[in-house]
Design a protein around this nucleic acid. Structure first.
Lengths: 219, 219
DNA sequence: GGACTGTATCAACACCGTGTCGATTAAGTC
DNA sequence: GACTTAATCGACACGGTGTTGATACAGTCC
């Protein structure tokens, strides 16, 4: 959905107010500085001055390019999300027909990979959510996309008799997608009880399969 | 684990420096003000001055009772966690023998109920985690408790032949416990894709049962 | 009942991060 | 060479945090 990242003619509201001169370099410098610093410390430990210094400008000049520190992060997250959306489209095709286990694994793999390759940004986005409504809205859209995809898959599998009935497909999808988010976040952040990087996919795929195709009754 | 809440003789580091006079009222007033304000707005929108005013004291006096705003929230969360731990102990007994579905539901119900009844505090704790290491450590301990309980249950069920083998019990437990946390948080916060309050337990119990007792292979 | 001790209180201060204003410079047009 | 418009920054105002030092206000203790 709405990328507006390449559309340099249309100012995207988040970035700079309508320009085309050499200041593009500075804008990029700010974004790169932000990504670099986020590898070292958390968002709350980075000030506007740090970003300005890193880009070789003064703090007031920073505000010529971005309205706030949050806006910088949102711009970066926007792009990450757009990239991840690409993987998703692609993976959904694989999932549609053929071996469900392999298809589901491909889909979750792509998603996991997209965020793991830019851990720092993913963690910053999470840190922003509680205090920034724009970040919340953006993430809501992202989650909604995955949930509706997963819902469609579950319903299709039930329709063709491959999966048994159970909880409403959308409810199941919400819980599973939120599980993925949380498990991945914990692993990225290196939380104390968390899955090892190499185990994440095995465990998640297994739970998804059992939740979708398994029967609920214990022996 | 370590409550140190009743132990008024031992100053608990978080609270006030060794006292016993009428200032106890003020300490309680601050805690109550914090809980009250958290019902209205998020932690980041509450200042030390708000807490002081609410308790009828000046901002410097606040620092006589607590070293920071975070310390107030941590004190409250400490108590919530202690309460929740009580429920857990109790629920584990029920789970041990008899109908697994009913037992599991009881356990998850108690946990869900403990946090739902003080939503605002739970949300504040989550907001604190990214910026406060003490909050992270506290929550780590809480998660670890649930994870090791769940691990034990899964291993016991596998040992007695009620549950089939599968992913390592602890890995499964981590993912499931983190799912619960995330799903419950989303519901409390009223996030956009989130489960309705009345659906949460049905969905979570179902996924737990399928993940523990189900077989992974699709038809 | 006056000297002593520890609790409780707050005005004033120093500090830091944010965001804005106004003045200034450096390029392009035409 | 007068006119815009991009780009820059010093100086300011603001709001929040945490500390210091002075002070009032109990209660002992002799």
């Amino acid at each position: 959905m709405e990328a507006a990242s390449k559309a340099r003619s249309t100012p995207n509201g988040r970035g700079r107010r309508a320009t085309r001169a050499s200041g593009d370099d500075r804008e990029r410098a700010i974004l790169e500085t932000a990504e670099r610093l986020l590898e070292e410390r958390s968002l709350s430990e980075i000030s506007v001055d740090d970003l300005a210094k890193g880009a070789g400008i003064s703090r007031p000049t920073f505000y010529f390019y971005f309205p706030s520190k949050d806006a910088v992060v949102l711009t970066i997250v926007d792009r990450l999300v757009a990239d991840a959306a690409g993987s998703r489209e692609e993976a959904l095709g694989t999932l549609a027909q053929g071996d469900p286990r392999a298809g589901l694994r491909r889909a979750l793999e792509d998603l996991y990979g997209a965020f793991r390759s830019r851990r720092a940004v993913a963690l910053a986005a999470a840190e922003l959510r509680p205090t920034n409504s724009e970040a919340r809205d953006l993430w809501s859209q992202v989650m909604e996309g995955w949930v509706s995809d997963a819902t469609a898959v579950i319903e299709a599998e039930r329709a063709r008799g491959a999966a048994p009935p159970g909880q409403p497909a959308r409810d199941l999808a919400i819980a599973l997608v939120q599980m993925n988010e949380r498990v991945q976040y914990a692993t990225f952040a290196g939380e104390s009880p968390s899955l090892e990087d190499e185990r994440v996919l095995d465990v998640l795929v297994d739970i998804w399969l059992r939740a979708i195709y398994g029967t609920p009754e214990p022996g």
